[in-house]
């Protein structure tokens, strides 16, 4: 649910990183946080366990500049990927404008990827969204892993609506910004339609 403030000329959009446990959602936004101009980024808030697993969410506000005289601000959230945190995942999707699905390229995680997309579809539906129409990007992360499945194979298993599909190695920053950009593009074009 985009918040457009005509008084302060601001648009705030919420983007959620979704995916199975340890696929690299937090790594994506940590990399963005490290790279972003300190004046434009807010504080990275991580609600994590002692072992650095996301407990509730990570949050990073980013000032992107202006479009048509409006200041555009993205609020990036990640969900906890572990299966048993489903109630939290559902809450975080509330009012989101777009979803970035981070898939783990390792062959052994393919089943977890598929399960997590199904879980995303259910949780979006419960929040009143449709996975087939909401702005959506598929990121194939960990492309540098020796056990990575081929892109063709992953596309066949995980891509379902001709969404932008981006190869990434999030801990090195490869594909991270491209992914965010692809999501931003869809969200802003959606604003145009409404």
């Amino acid at each position: 649910m985009t918040f457009i403030n005509y008084a302060s000329r601001e648009i705030n959009c919420k983007i959620v990183y979704y995916g199975p446990g340890l696929c690299g959602k937090t790594t994506n936004i940590q990399w963005i946080h490290e790279q972003a101009n300190p004046e434009k980024r807010g504080k990275l808030v991580s609600l994590a366990t002692e072992t650095d697993r996301t407990l509730f969410f990570d949050f990073l506000p980013l000032d992107m500049g202006t479009v048509k005289g409006f200041k555009v601000r993205f609020h990036l959230y990640t969900v906890p990927g572990q299966v048993f945190y489903d109630a939290s995942r559902k809450l975080i999707l509330r009012g989101c404008d777009g979803v970035i699905y981070v898939a783990d390229s390792q062959r052994a995680r393919m089943e977890a990827n598929i399960e997590s997309i199904a879980n995303l579809a259910t949780n979006l539906k419960e929040n009143g969204f449709d996975i087939r129409t909401i702005p959506y990007v598929l990121q194939l992360n960990k492309r540098d892993m020796p056990s990575a499945a081929t892109v063709d194979e992953m596309e066949r298993l995980l891509r379902f609506r001709n969404e932008p599909m981006i190869e990434a190695v999030a801990n090195k920053g490869t594909g991270v910004i491209e992914t965010l950009k692809a999501a931003a593009r869809q969200i802003l074009l959606e604003l145009q339609k409404s």
């Binding site: 918040f3 808030v45 609600l47 506000p61 509330r94 009012g95």
Partner: peptide, 28 residues
Amino acid sequence: VDKNGQQIAASGDLKSIDATSLASLTAG
């Protein structure tokens, strides 16, 4: 703040507080 974590309005000594994080954590 709105329930999705966006700040709508504020008043008082704002300098000492990270308002954006406060809004998001409150909503959470």
